[in-house]
């Protein structure tokens, strides 16, 4: 499964983007499980996002999730952190 994370916004507004292919990744099984959990449960989708909170678009297995700081589930946060290699 290909997992892609695109970040926009934040105070700095410096965009970040990264992708992994789980079949090629040493922790592929863990990432795939995280992606399933992350996409299954949007955190507080109707809650207002923080101004300057990071905005994320996560695409995995052809499905897309939009989420924003500070309303991330622990699985979303871990997935984004692992794929992007930066704090989420």
């Amino acid at each position: 499964m290909r997992i892609e994370v695109v970040r926009s916004g934040g105070f700095t507004a410096v965009p970040r983007q990264a992708a992994v292919e789980t079949a090629d990744h040493p922790e592929g099984a863990r990432l795939a499980a995280l992606a399933e959990a992350a996409l299954a449960s949007p955190a507080a989708p109707d809650a207002p996002a923080a101004p300057d909170g990071f905005r994320y678009t996560v695409t995995a297995g052809g499905r897309t999730l939009h989420c924003a700081e500070p309303h991330l589930t622990p699985q979303q946060r871990e997935l984004i952190h692992r794929v992007l290699g930066e704090g989420a």
């Binding site: 300057d52 909170g53 990071f54 930066e86 989420a88």
Partner: peptide, 16 residues
């Protein structure tokens, strides 16, 4: 807040 976190924000109630 978090580790190596490259951001600051107002979450509607406080500064982070």
């Amino acid at each position: 807040y978090q580790e190596d976190y490259n951001n600051a924000f107002w979450n509607g109630e406080q500064m982070v």
